[in-house]
Amino acid sequence: MPAVASRTSLATDLRIAVNRLSRTLRNQKADQAVTDAQFSALARLHRDGAMTLADLSRQDGVTPPSMTKTVAVLMERGLVSKRLHGDDRRKVLIGTTEAGAAFVEETRRRRDGWLSPRLTALTPAERQTLADATEIMRRLAQQ
Rank of each mutant, 00 (worst) to 15 (best):
residue 23 R to N: 02
residue 17 A to L: 10
residue 133 A to R: 09
residue 118 R to Y: 03
residue 128 Q to F: 07
residue 125 A to E: 14
residue 125 A to H: 08
residue 25 L to S: 01
residue 143 Q to P: 00
residue 97 T to L: 03
residue 1 M to P: 11
residue 134 T to R: 11
residue 126 E to W: 02
residue 122 L to K: 08
residue 32 Q to Y: 02
residue 100 G to V: 03
residue 137 M to R: 03
residue 69 K to H: 12
residue 63 T to I: 02
residue 82 K to T: 12
residue 3 A to M: 13
residue 113 G to V: 10
residue 90 R to V: 03
residue 74 L to Q: 13
residue 131 A to T: 03
residue 133 A to H: 05
residue 61 G to M: 05
residue 36 D to L: 05
residue 140 L to S: 00
residue 110 R to G: 05
residue 16 I to W: 13
residue 58 R to I: 00
residue 88 D to P: 06
residue 25 L to P: 01
residue 51 M to C: 14
residue 10 L to M: 13
residue 46 H to E: 12
residue 14 L to Y: 14
residue 2 P to W: 09
residue 99 A to C: 07
residue 143 Q to Y: 04
residue 105 E to F: 01
residue 54 A to L: 14
residue 96 T to K: 03
residue 116 S to M: 13
residue 134 T to Q: 10
residue 54 A to N: 14
residue 122 L to E: 08
residue 87 D to A: 12
residue 126 E to Y: 02
residue 108 R to D: 07
residue 50 A to N: 11
residue 84 L to F: 05
residue 18 V to L: 11
residue 65 P to Q: 11
residue 18 V to F: 08
residue 101 A to C: 07
residue 138 R to K: 07
residue 129 T to D: 11
residue 110 R to H: 11
residue 35 T to P: 01
residue 121 A to P: 05
residue 16 I to Q: 15
residue 113 G to L: 08
residue 86 G to N: 09
residue 65 P to R: 12
residue 44 R to F: 09
residue 38 Q to K: 04
residue 86 G to Y: 10
residue 72 A to P: 01
residue 133 A to G: 05
residue 123 T to P: 07
residue 68 T to D: 12
residue 99 A to S: 13
residue 135 E to G: 13
residue 107 T to K: 01
residue 135 E to H: 09
residue 21 L to K: 02
residue 43 A to V: 01
residue 34 V to A: 02
residue 81 S to R: 11
